[in-house]
Nucleic acid binder design. Structure first.
Lengths: 207, 207
DNA sequence: TAGATTGTTAATCGATTAACAATC
DNA sequence: TAGATTGTTAATCGATTAACAATC
């Protein structure tokens, strides 16, 4: 109940809980339980209650959790009760997909700008209205705008340089799609998305 | 030393090790150590040695690991010493990005076919040479081709149906990009990629 | 009230780390 | 040989689960 130092593995599950709650709400549900959430997510009900107990008491004995209330609280805990500007680097297929991704807006994020290194791409307008900017201006632009979150969607051999530039310009949270392990100071949080890594995790279990 | 029942969390790290080894090899390195790998990945050297010890002995005392040898062994362990056909569902921006993703081929995967529900997309040819097929033919095609791995890149409201179809047709491993928790039998492995979930994990640590 | 479900404690389980003999 | 690094054991640390009093 109101710890400081919540285990990172617990923090990592909160967005999953939040997503499930939003899903239930869209289904016009008003109340749920740790049991129902757990069944849905493949997690034990005890774990869900334990996880939530790090942050407060959000349920009612005998009843469960009011979905909207818990949802609001999780948004606050995760700091997505506000909008975050995100700077996207890389305007290839993946960058384009991310720039026009519909799943950001109502979950706390907005792609504020897109950068690329290719001269023929710079100046082009994306469907969403963003104009691709020159990666040479990345550092200045990030610093001046004060963006704290970056998404890296450039090829592997450019990723570390982009990461270092972003970090140098004040970014403290990175979502990296390039298939390399970024080197970053411990003050900078990095999340990694590498589809091949996930697929290889799966194939371990296949004949 | 050749356990059965290796913890899933260990299996999940192996693709990261493999990726780091390939990276070092590209740098013309021939030997590495658990210390070097650990520094690079932000993992303790003891953990790397322990993880590998589940599968055998791959190093030499006093020397370290021959990169190519360990790489080959990890490929075998992860079953990516072969090529896996992957069926991709969804030909939106994300589907297109995945269909033309260069990071699959040399790491064990090939997008064998792409499906979409939009009539105007069906029949279109993608840059890589694949022709978008009608999702109505998904079940038959998957069954006949015997594909075991599926990637779901459709909107959230279509994802569960696609997953069920794939599973019904024999797919046993899913990589899901739709922002929902899929319901699947325990015989089917699911990996989830939701950029917003990762971003929310990051914002927890931001003011 | 009776039934249900929370929040929390204590027990269990599992993963990580430290340490070191073995040995290249 | 001396130095380095593995593979493994045992200790530590942390996370999950089971159980239940509290209470809606």
């Amino acid at each position: 109940m109101g710890d400081r130092q919540v285990p990172d593995i617990v923090v990592g599950r909160l967005p999953i809980y939040l997503r499930a709650l939003t899903f239930l709400k869209a289904d016009n549900r008003e109340i749920t339980s740790s049991q129902e959430l757990g069944d849905r997510l493949g997690i034990s009900s005890a774990q869900i209650r334990k996880d939530l107990s790090h942050f407060g008491e959000f349920g009612k004995q005998g009843t469960g959790y009011e979905i909207r209330y818990l949802e609001d609280n999780l948004r606050e805990i995760l700091h997505v009760d506000r909008m975050w500007d995100v700077v996207l680097v890389g305007a290839g297929d993946l960058g384009n997909a991310l720039a026009s991704y519909k799943g950001f807006a109502d979950r706390g994020f907005r792609v504020a700008a897109v950068f690329d290194a290719a001269p023929e791409k710079v100046g082009q307008k994306l469907p969403g209205g963003l104009v691709i900017e020159d990666v040479n201006t990345l550092e200045t632009r990030v610093r001046e705008a004060g963006w704290k979150i970056g998404i890296i969607a450039v090829p592997a051999d450019a990723a570390q340089k982009v990461a270092s530039t972003l970090i140098g310009a004040g970014v403290v949270a990175l979502l990296n799609y390039a298939p390399i392990s970024l080197i970053a100071p411990s003050t900078v949080r990095v999340e990694q998305i590498d589809p091949t890594v996930h697929l290889q995790h799966l194939t371990y279990y296949l004949g």
